[in-house]
Computed example of a mutant assay.
Amino acid sequence: MLDHFLVALGAVVPIFVLVGIGVTVRLRHLLTEAEIRNVNAMVFQIFFFCMMFYNIYTADFDKTFRPQLMCFAFFGILGLFFVAIAVVCLVEKQDFRRGAMVQAIYRSNYVLLGVPLVANIYGQELVAVPMALIPVVVPLYNVLGVIILEVFRGGPIAPIPIAASVLRNPMIRGALLGLFCRVVGLPLPHPILAPLHEVAMATTPVALIVLGASIRLDGVKAEPLQLAFCTVARLVVVPAVMLTAAALLGFRGVDFVTILSIFSTPCAVAGFAMAQQMGSDAMLAGSCVIATTLFASVTVFGWIFAAKTIGFI
């Protein structure tokens, strides 16, 4: 039990260290508000593009291919997305907040916390299982995020304009370009891949620092009901439903923990950047990242402990 607690704690503490650096940047006035917005735009436009391209281009699709697990992840996220829209539209009347709330419910920090969680439980020899789902989960997260934020900021609902908006998103373009290069077998030399790898590795730390520099403490208190609703939904309700479904469908071992890492981890940091760039409630989105990350060490520990006690892992 202590080992699992330390795994969850070890995944959460580095995030708060980086967010704390961002808070220090704000407190020491090292960046102005305008500069913070510009840095966040750089992360969204450049860093996330490079990260998505590199992850897709270098993914080892042949090492671990589990179609049933991929289908569960894909349709599980898609179903959760539509349920989240229906529920949020019932409890929240302002479109400005709806997009951020839907993202907070369906979109997890899978790459940042989920993959290391599986690796810490089963070791590096089985980390290829969650890694193989990144080309499925991450693009789906981004496509759905662009769609929901575009719709709730008053963008056109017609399929063609929405598709065009999705394709303009840097993360989607990076994923599509990486996939294209893989399909056509375009070899990229090391002098090109090396800096892309460095930018990809820097994306999460920089995004977290910008997050810390962007969020004020009073922002966490601005919408307490919406924040509490999203936090409970993300960390308790969603994993309860999805893990029950996974158990009933027979997923066990590393497959079950991979599903757990998708549906029980905190809100994605990228959701904050997208909310800020696309006119949604970025303060609420950032607050959801902080709150869910804070409580995740307890809830993720609880889900792991329960699953291990029952015998699913």
Score class of each variant (00 low, 15 high):
171 M>F: 14
171 M>C: 12
171 M>T: 08
171 M>G: 06
171 M>H: 09
172 I>D: 00
172 I>Q: 04
172 I>V: 15
172 I>R: 11
172 I>C: 08
172 I>S: 09
173 R>I: 15
173 R>S: 14
173 R>K: 14
173 R>W: 00
173 R>G: 15
174 G>E: 01
174 G>Y: 07
174 G>P: 06
174 G>F: 02
174 G>T: 01
175 A>N: 05
176 L>V: 11
176 L>C: 09
176 L>Y: 03
176 L>K: 09
177 L>H: 08
177 L>E: 03
177 L>V: 13
177 L>K: 07
177 L>I: 14
177 L>M: 12
178 G>M: 09
178 G>N: 05
178 G>R: 13
178 G>F: 05
178 G>Y: 10
179 L>R: 09
179 L>E: 11
179 L>A: 15
180 F>M: 15
180 F>Y: 12
180 F>D: 01
180 F>Q: 05
180 F>P: 07
180 F>R: 07
180 F>V: 12
180 F>E: 01
180 F>S: 12
181 C>S: 11
181 C>P: 00
181 C>T: 08
181 C>K: 05
182 R>W: 00
182 R>Y: 06
182 R>S: 11
182 R>G: 14
183 V>R: 02
183 V>Y: 01
183 V>D: 05
184 V>E: 05
184 V>A: 01
184 V>I: 14
184 V>L: 09
184 V>P: 00
184 V>R: 06
185 G>M: 07
185 G>I: 02
185 G>L: 01
185 G>D: 06
185 G>Y: 02
185 G>C: 08
186 L>M: 06
186 L>F: 11
186 L>S: 02
187 P>N: 10
188 L>I: 03
188 L>P: 01
188 L>N: 04
188 L>Y: 02
188 L>H: 03
189 P>R: 13
189 P>V: 09
189 P>Y: 02
190 H>D: 03
190 H>L: 09
190 H>N: 13
191 P>S: 00
191 P>G: 00
191 P>R: 00
191 P>N: 03
191 P>Y: 05
192 I>A: 15
192 I>Q: 01
192 I>P: 09
192 I>Y: 04
193 L>K: 04
193 L>H: 05
193 L>A: 00
193 L>F: 05
193 L>C: 02
193 L>V: 04
193 L>G: 01
194 A>Y: 13
194 A>E: 11
194 A>P: 02
194 A>N: 13
194 A>V: 13
194 A>F: 11
194 A>G: 11
194 A>Q: 12
195 P>R: 07
196 L>H: 03
196 L>N: 01
196 L>M: 14
197 H>N: 13
197 H>K: 13
197 H>V: 09
198 E>G: 10
198 E>H: 13
198 E>R: 10
198 E>L: 14
199 V>L: 13
199 V>T: 08
199 V>W: 03
199 V>A: 10
199 V>G: 06
200 A>D: 03
200 A>G: 07
200 A>Q: 08
200 A>N: 09
201 M>P: 00
201 M>E: 10
201 M>Q: 14
201 M>C: 12
